[in-house]
Amino acid sequence: MKLTSVSKSLRKLRIPAVLFRRLAVAALPLLLLLALATGCSLFERGGSSAISHKIDQEEDVISSNGGVISNLDKLDSFMERGSGSQRIVQYTIEGDPIFIETRYEGGRLELSYDTTEDAFGPREVKTYSCDKLVRTEEKHQLKYSLKGCGEDMGDGDLLTVDFDLGRQDKFEFILKYGFNHRNEINTVNQNLVKDMLDGTVIEISDYGLPVEDRQSIYRKLVLSNYLGEKQLSTSCNLKPYQSYDLTVLINSAERHYAWSECDTGRDGKVMTEAAEYIIGLVEAGDSFLQLPAATGSVK
């Protein structure tokens, strides 16, 4: 919206010059209010972004280098709703953020790409329209692909999550769980420990986790954003209570997490789900099933 278009309309009414100037001056405050209310600008924006650059760690889907992707479930919920909007922040290799605003408009998917903070990009904001966003999972990848975007943009992948364990030099973990961490799954030392709930434990040495289970566990951890910062709590007002202690060794890095069943925060729930997934896989395996049933009880 430009001031010049309003001026031309007033001149077509053949209003005397003095009165025209008075009307223009009087109308300017109203035009400013209308611009604020409708989101249009009286003047050119000079290439500035229409998308907020304030990153919301809780609501934005944030994709960083190194496989760290947070709040991926927000994108899934957006697709399921088929309405509203969802923002994605993708960091470049150099660490610059690219902001992508996705929203449903009239049955179509509108995307605004803001690269104004990308030092090596075009530094502009462009909007495209696509038919839909499709989620597909292949053997070692999860893809969110754009379809029916037209010639200006073309179809392509909006976001890709890679969980191919074969691309990692090292992946091991130690999970201690249960009451007082007496159960343990340890792929580093290759042993499995079961709490008999009577003050004793049974241990399996030379325990080997099947390759397909290792791949499945790695996928679960990646989708749980295990490399991201976690807010976890080990406190619990239950007696007794179950707790978890997880150490992941990935390539040359090591990450450690500790929390209790009482941690019902967002990160606590995600990590509990990941831990129980690992436990479920191991306890359904032949090695664990060959162990005798626990003879004691929880006290």
Rank of each mutant, 00 (worst) to 15 (best):
F179S: 10
D162V: 02
E172V: 01
D164E: 10
V161F: 04
G166H: 05
L158W: 01
F171V: 05
F171C: 01
F163Y: 15
G150R: 04
R167A: 12
G178R: 12
Y177R: 04
K176F: 00
F171L: 04
G178D: 10
L159S: 11
L159V: 07
K170F: 10
F179L: 15
F171Y: 11
G166W: 00
C149V: 04
Y177D: 04
F171K: 03
I174V: 15
C149N: 10
D164T: 01
D164W: 01
G166V: 00
F163C: 02
D155H: 07
F179Q: 14
V161Y: 11
I174S: 11
E151T: 13
T160R: 11
Y177F: 14
G156F: 05
E151R: 13
K170S: 13
D152G: 14
G178P: 12
L175Q: 09
F171H: 03
G166E: 13
G156K: 05
L175V: 08
Y177T: 03
L159H: 10
G150M: 05
D164A: 12
Q168F: 05
L158K: 04
F179C: 13
L159P: 12
R167L: 12
F179H: 15
C149K: 06
D157M: 04
L165A: 10
L165G: 03
G156N: 06
E172R: 08
G154M: 06
K176Q: 14
V161I: 15
L175N: 07
L158S: 02
D162L: 01
V161M: 06
Y177Q: 01
V161E: 08
L158D: 02
G154P: 07
F179M: 12
L159A: 10
K176C: 01
D169V: 00
G156Y: 01
C149D: 08
V161H: 09
L159T: 08
G154Y: 04
G156L: 05
F179T: 14
L165H: 06
